[in-house]
């Protein structure tokens, strides 16, 4: 009985904390932070750096100046990201990447892990998927946190 209850609880909590098959993990902001890693994933800064400068994935480079050797800035819609890890907590960095509209409702920054139910007319190939998976978000956040 206790065992079954434990199993049920474990299932329920993994449903809440883990990512679904499309890579989406539900999240909750506290103030201007998401304190917990998405889906309980551990980020890898090296992978995060690759995602940030990849035009098909994070593409941070399209709008932000990144402190990376040999990469030319492509845009100035967002602030430069050099030193961002010293100015923001990890929880704040996570919310910025996940849903910038929590800071600025009129933001032009894509919602990289916004709640799927708030999206309109998502094209078929992308329907039901977040822009970046929970793992990719954690990778990018881990890299941003190193920018001190």
């Amino acid at each position: 009985m206790a065992c079954a209850l434990f199993l049920l609880l474990a299932l329920a909590s993994s449903r809440f904390a883990g990512a679904d098959e499309a890579g989406y993990a539900s999240w909750r902001a506290r103030g201007f932070e998401i304190p917990e890693p998405l889906g309980g994933r551990k980020g890898d800064p090296a992978r995060g750096r690759a995602i940030a400068s990849d035009g098909a994935r994070g593409n941070c480079l399209a709008c932000h100046r990144l402190p990376l050797e040999g990469l030319e800035a492509q845009g100035d819609l967002g602030p430069p990201l050099a030193g961002i890890g010293a100015r923001q907590t990890v929880g704040m960095l996570r919310l910025h990447v996940v849903d910038q509209s929590r800071f600025n409702p009129d933001t032009v920054m894509p919602g990289f892990h916004r709640r799927p139910e708030r999206l309109h007319r998502v094209g078929k190939p992308w329907r039901g998927r977040p822009f970046l998976t929970a793992q990719q978000i954690e990778d990018v956040v881990a890299w941003l946190a190193t920018l001190k």
């Binding site: 845009g75 819609l77 992308w126 977040p130």
Partner: peptide, 20 residues
């Protein structure tokens, strides 16, 4: 869409700035 941006965000608020 998945990118979740309106025409307005780019073309009213950021004309003259650079993207890609």
């Amino acid at each position: 869409g998945q990118v979740d941006i309106a025409c307005h965000q780019c073309h009213d608020n950021h004309a003259g700035q650079h993207f890609r």
